[in-house]
Computed example of a mutant assay.
Amino acid sequence: MLSLLLVAAALLVWPQLKPLRRLRPAGKGEIVVPQWLWLIAAVTVTYLAAGVGGLIAGSVLAVVIYRIIKQGRRNRALRTATEALSNGLGGVVDELRAGAHAATAAEGAAQDTPAPAAEVLKAAAATARLGGDVERTLRDLRQPVLGTAVDQLAKAWHVSAKHGVALADVLDATRLDLDQRAAFARQVHARMAGPRASAAVLAGLPVFGVLLGELSGARPLHILISTTAGQFLLVLGALFLAAGLWWTKRITEVEP
């Protein structure tokens, strides 16, 4: 227990690197270590410390955690971009109802809209100004973040062009739908904070169990690292843990 307290105290007083980087002389550049070198070092250390089973288990957990973090960042970027596009469409609707041309309205709204939603509005404005097919332009845009929202916007433009419905009305309906989807995604994300925290605590319990076993003298690390059965159990436990983390991520997240 004393060793754990010492490690926690060391982490609390560990120096921050950002102030040191700010105080570095301007003439001295920062040494950048390639990511593949860090990967090779991590694989080597894991293999030497935990064997083949530890390497497989660490790789499985690392891949799943990386995918979870990447998916979380993508969902946050999608929510932000959807809200930005909705706000931009609100500006387009206001300009259209004031009597502005579609190209002028979209171009004006794009100036106050952050990327990547601004790119969508600029593409629509440029095509409308030239008298082109805005629906095809939006479908060919292949926006990686706002793919579903852009397709929905293209359908709205198609309805207006084919059936003569006022463009302001269909864009306003699209804006309302995007608002509702973004609000629902934010609500689900906020309400699932508790279950996500509980899942993180449960995922860490096996690690604490192994540490407690070591402190009590049961030597579980010796079994997991030095025996064939332990190596198999280490991989099996990592697979179950990774599956649980990924499933928790899937059921507690929703895309706008």
Rank of each mutant, 00 (worst) to 15 (best):
Q180Y: 05
R191N: 12
S198R: 13
L176A: 15
D169C: 09
R196K: 15
A190T: 13
D177S: 15
V210R: 06
G164S: 02
R186D: 06
L215N: 05
H189R: 11
L215V: 08
R196A: 03
G204K: 01
T174P: 01
L202R: 08
L211I: 12
V207F: 10
M192F: 05
P206E: 01
M192C: 08
A218E: 07
R186G: 12
G204T: 07
R175Q: 11
P206S: 00
R219E: 12
A199P: 14
P206G: 00
G164E: 00
R191V: 07
E214N: 07
A173V: 11
D169H: 02
D169F: 02
R191F: 08
A190E: 08
A183L: 13
Q180D: 15
V201G: 04
M192Q: 05
A203V: 14
D179S: 04
D172G: 07
R181P: 08
A168W: 00
V207L: 06
R186K: 13
A173Y: 09
A218R: 10
D169S: 13
V170Q: 04
A190Y: 03
A218I: 09
A168R: 02
L205M: 13
A218F: 14
H189T: 13
L176S: 13
G209S: 10
A193K: 14
L178R: 00
R219G: 01
D177L: 15
A199N: 01
T174G: 06
D169Y: 04
V165H: 06
R175F: 00
A183T: 10
V165D: 03
R191L: 11
D179A: 03
L211K: 11
F184S: 12
L205N: 01
A197E: 13
M192P: 02
V188M: 01
G204Q: 09
R181M: 04
G209C: 03
A166E: 10
K162S: 13
A199Q: 07
L205T: 02
A182Y: 10
E214K: 08
A166M: 10
A166P: 08
P195Y: 03
H189K: 07
G213A: 00
A161H: 11
E214Q: 15
L215G: 06
Q180V: 10
R181T: 08
